[in-house]
Nucleic acid binder design. Structure first.
Lengths: 112, 112
DNA sequence: CCCATACTTAGCCCTTGCGCTAAGTGTCGT
DNA sequence: ACGACACTTAGCGCAAGGGCTAAGTATGGG
C-alpha cells in the first residue's frame, strides 16, 4: 500500500512530460531503438536518454541492449496503475452520490 | 488539438504530486474549505495554497470565496482528459495487434 | 585494424517546484 | 472599535528537472 503510493507517484511523474508521453504513444505501435525514437524529438541524444531512463525506472517501458542498440518496448501493465487511480476516484464519487441519495431518501444520518 | 495537448499536460503535471492527488481524492467526497483541507497535510498554509492554485489553474478544481472562506470543489470533467489519453493508448495498442493479426493472416503488406 | 555507429557518462546551466517565514488584507463576532 | 480568523502576498532557499556540450565506451562493417 505504501509501495503502491510510491509507484503511482512515479508513473504520474513520468507521464507529466510531453516528450515522455509521446514516447509511450510511439511505443504503443511497437518497439523501437533509442536512436529511432530520439530522431522524432527536437533535442540531443543525451537529453532524450534521460527521458528513456525516467520511463524505464518508473516501469513504463522496458529496454534491452543488443550489440550497440538499445531497444525499448512499452510495459502496458504499468498504465493500469493510472487506470486504477481513476477508477478509485470514480468509486469515491459514486459513494458520495449514494450517500446524498440516501440522505434524501432517509434523512437520519449526517454525513457532514 | 494544440490546446488539448497543453491542457492534458497541465492535468498530468497537476496530478504528478501526492499532495495534489490527495486533495483531488478528498474533494471527491465533497467540497471543503482551504483551511479544512490544509489541516490534513503536514505543511504550512501558504505552501498548501500553492497546490490549490495549481489544481485550480489546471482546471481540476474550482474555488469560490465567500466572506473569508474559500471553498474548493472537484471538477470531475477534467479527469476525463486523463481517461481519454488512456483510451487513446488502448486504441493504438489495439490497432497494432490488429496489424499483427492481419500480417499473420495475410502476409503481404509490410507495417515497418 | 580502423572508422563509423550507437549509445553512455560527466558535468554545467538555468528554470521551475516545493517548502518556509514574515507581514498584509479583508471578514466576522463581540 | 477591535481582536481573532482565514486566507493572501512577498520573498527566500534549496533541490530537482530538462536541456546542452564534450568526451568516453563498445560494437559492427570493411
Amino acid at each position: 500500500m505504501e509501495q503502491y503510493a510510491a509507484e503511482l507517484d512515479g508513473v504520474f511523474v513520468a507521464l507529466a512530460d510531453p516528450t515522455r508521453r509521446a514516447v509511450v504513444r510511439r511505443l504503443g505501435r511497437g518497439p523501437a531503438s533509442v536512436g529511432d525514437l530520439a530522431r522524432e524529438f527536437p533535442m540531443t541524444l543525451p537529453s532524450f536518454m534521460k527521458h528513456v531512463r525516467t520511463l524505464e525506472s518508473n516501469g513504463l517501458i522496458r529496454t534491452v541492449k543488443s550489440g550497440r542498440v538499445r531497444t525499448c518496448a512499452l510495459n502496458r501493465e504499468r498504465l493500469a496503475l493510472v487506470d486504477g487511480w481513476l477508477a478509485e476516484q470514480r468509486r469515491i464519487w459514486e459513494e458520495r452520490t449514494d450517500r446524498l441519495e440516501r440522505f434524501v431518501t432517509d434523512p437520519e444520518e449526517d454525513g457532514q
